[in-house]
Design a protein around this nucleic acid. Structure first.
Length: 672
RNA sequence: GCCCGGGUAGCUCAGUUGGUCAGAGCAGGCGCCUUGUAAGCGUCAGGUCGUCGGUUCGAAUCCGACCCCGGGCUCCA
């Protein structure tokens, strides 16, 4: 046999001479593909174009249009980054440099423990471009471990990887960096630059170039805070100039949506230095939106069979000892206060209080499930570097509930809980969900196997009946029970983890919770912790970014602004306002002491959904000119009655009170 | 907590090598203008240059400590 047969993704097959490579295959298919090809996948596994194919291989020629192609391109760009850094700083050493979403990074240690500056980034980028222009081949090599250790004698992190990999101790992250089976693979290019790597890589550096270096950051070696802090350089890389440009544009757009920026611009929330990190104050407009969100939450919970409860912000240490928080969560708690000989802690969670309420009287199975709901403010000592606007703060309010039920009630309770969760999130314009089911950890956990089984099956069938996309994190659950986390995708495609439904077999045990069953005996209830928005503050921040500050009408702090054309229309403007206010709308009048254009602009900048301009014609005819957010231009001579009824429709469709939401997408349109 | 970069008026920022460097625009106050859909004109007021210490004849500028902010890392049972 002098030929091999290769099958292609479209089901066709091709014959090539023995010894033909991926590059040969691409050339055989067509010249433009040959030019665009970066690697091939053989039976789904990436491989350099220069490597030979074998008879019967199922091969895909991969270009930058495929995820694997971009991945390789970014990985190869990371190699060039390392090459440039090692060129420019003799004595520098490189650690790991993987591709990541949208780009890549590489970790380094520089001589004398120095770090990179912004000017360094420019120099590195310039050197990288020289390497790319030189069009150096990426050459795949193999070595025994002793030989490899010798090759990387000057590079302690590479040696550590080789040792870990060859002894079989490598974790997932490291094994991608080197090789397997006693053979170490590495790549060589240019004048002797070598890097440990399993590949594959693009054929030569000339295939790269649509990249920018973005930032320098510190990163612990192997992500362990006990290990040395390395210098990480992040970059982004794409297959062509246009994609790179688009990506940079998206980053700029995301920055414009930053909730911290919008919170200031729209006068919603601020973080005075005097309060301390992670602690915000809510200005009237922000507080109004927050109140609308909270009111909606309360209304839904009231209709959903929840009992409202309240609990204090601090409690004696015994409560936290019983709950176990002082054992496994002390680092996250604010420090204690000594009062009257007792030790009090600010609460990091609401659950022990709700448990206390459950304990306050004897309970029959007929009373279950009991669902306690509280917008409970908690305080957590987040690391100073972790604090981030409203998305990660030290004081926040959970839309927290604890449900106590019998084991038999668990499946139904979970199913209705998940429906409830999704329905509430949809009301805020989220309709793209991704869930994660976390199951029993392999190592220590509490609770009987049958209970874990029941709860995990319950969660799974709830996910399935809600037709929700989900992934399973095997063994990823907490030691005390399985859980579901729900992510939403926002208007520009970013995921946010909001909701959690967490089973707890531990707290009922620790507090000795009981109910009296139908058999007259005492039984232990199952407890479910759940938060839908998670934290009201964080949810508000996510909404602000989701809507880019343009809240839908039902949430907008100011729904309508009336602008009289001149002073003589002030009285009519006020009468329009009064009529709308009587309808329950939030309306202001901006008097004519500035030019109309300026006042229109101010209202637009503040993202008021409806700007009504009223002049002579309007006062005479009972009309308004509606310049609504997102519309192409103003709508003149609109009868006020018509505007009122449109507003009623808009507000009512925005905040459904109960049950499944039929037209969830409509709010998104209003928000745009 | 760790690495890097920052902190000048309410906001956004300019301030060269230490020496008329306390500045601009917007926002705010007061006048004028009376406007038909995204910035009218004039004028006034505003700052312990994050804080505290140091170097210097002299510090927004140099040094140290601390506070706060940003980007990462770690963390988010």
């Amino acid at each position: 046999m002098s030929e091999i047969t290769i099958s292609l993704p479209d089901g066709s097959s091709r014959s090539l001479p023995i010894g033909a490579t991926g590059a040969d295959l691409a050339t055989d298919i067509g010249p433009s593909l040959a030019k665009a090809a970066l690697i091939v996948t053989v039976d789904g596994v990436g491989q350099d174009l220069s490597r030979p194919l074998h008879d019967g291989d199922s091969v895909k020629v991969v270009t930058a249009d495929f995820e694997e192609g971009l991945h390789t391109l970014r990985h190869s760009t990371a190699h060039v980054l390392a090459q440039a850094v090692l060129d420019l700083w003799p004595g520098a050493t490189h650690a790991i440099g993987p591709p990541i979403e949208h780009g890549f990074y590489y970790d380094f240690e520089l001589p004398d423990n120095r770090s990179f500056t912004d000017e360094d980034l420019e120099a590195i980028e310039a050197r990288m471009r020289e390497i790319i222009v030189a069009d150096q081949d990426f050459e795949r090599c193999e070595a025994g471990s002793a030989e490899a250790l010798d090759l990387f004698a000057e590079h302690r992190y590479k040696r550590e990887i080789i040792e870990k990999v060859t002894s079989g101790e490598a974790d997932k992250e490291l094994s991608g960096e080197a090789a397997s089976d006693g053979v170490v693979t590495y790549y060589r290019n240019g004048d002797g630059f070598v890097d440990l790597c399993t590949g594959p890589h693009v054929p030569s550096t000339g295939r790269l170039g649509h990249f920018v270096l973005q930032k320098v950051a510190g990163a612990y070696w192997r992500g362990d805070e006990k290990q040395p802090m390395l210098q990480r350089i992040y970059g982004t890389a794409w297959g062509d100039k246009k994609s790179l440009k688009q990506h940079l544009h998206r980053l700029a757009e995301a920055e414009k949506r930053d909730h911290r920026r919008l919170a200031g611009e729209l006068d919603l929330v601020s973080w005075p230095d005097a309060l301390g990190p992670g602690l915000a104050v809510w200005h009237p407009k922000g507080a109004l939106v927050r109140k609308l969100i909270e009111d909606y939450s309360r209304t839904r919970h009231e209709a959903g069979g929840y009992d409202f409860v309240y609990s204090p912000h601090i409690a004696k240490s015994v409560l936290w000892e019983t709950s176990g928080h002082l054992d496994f969560y002390a680092d996250g708690m604010y420090p204690p206060m000594e009062l009257d000989g007792a030790t009090y802690y600010p609460k990091p969670m609401n659950c022990p209080f709700h448990v206390s309420i459950f304990q306050s009287r004897q309970c029959s199975y007929r009373d279950l499930p009991r669902r306690f709901f509280e917008l409970g403010a908690v305080y957590r000592y987040e690391l100073s570097g972790a604090v981030h606007g409203l998305l990660r703060s030290r004081g926040f309010t959970q839309d927290d509930s604890h449900i106590f039920c019998t084991p038999g009630q668990v499946p139904d309770e979970l199913a209705s809980l998940l429906d409830f969760t999704l329905s509430v999130l949809r009301a805020f314009g989220f309709d793209d969900f991704q869930a994660k089911l976390s199951t029993r950890p392999i190592e220590k956990s509490v609770g009987e196997e049958s209970l874990w089984q029941l709860a995990t099956d319950g969660l799974r069938s709830a996910l399935e009946s809600a037709a929700l996309d989900y992934v399973v994190d095997e063994g990823g659950g907490a030691f005390y029970g399985p859980k579901i986390d729900v992510d939403v995708t926002d208007a520009i495609g970013r995921p946010w983890q909001l909701s959690t439904i967490q089973l707890d077999f531990n707290l009922p045990e620790r507090f000795g919770l009981e109910y009296v069953g139908a058999d007259g005996g005492r039984h232990r209830p199952v407890m479910i912790h759940r938060a839908l928005m998670g934290s009201i503050e964080r949810f508000f921040g996510v909404l602000l970014e989701h809507y880019a500050g343009a809240f839908p009408v039902w949430l907008a702090p100011e729904q309508v602004r009336v602008l009289p054309v001149a002073d003589e229309h002030q009285a009519y403007a006020e009468s329009v306002r009064d009529i709308l206010v009587a309808d329950g709308r939030r309306v202001t009048v901006d008097p004519a002491d500035e030019p109309l254009g300026k006042r229109v602009r101010a209202a637009k900048v503040e993202k008021v959904p409806h700007v009504l301009v009223v002049g002579d014609d309007d006062a005479a005819n009972g009309t308004v000119g509606d310049n609504s957010r997102g519309a192409e231009g103003p709508e003149r001579d609109l009868p006020l009655e018509e505007f009122r009824s449109r507003m009623t429709t808009a507000v009512e469709s925005g905040a459904p009170v109960a049950g499944p939401i039929a037209n969830a997408t409509s709010f998104k349109e209003q928000g745009s």
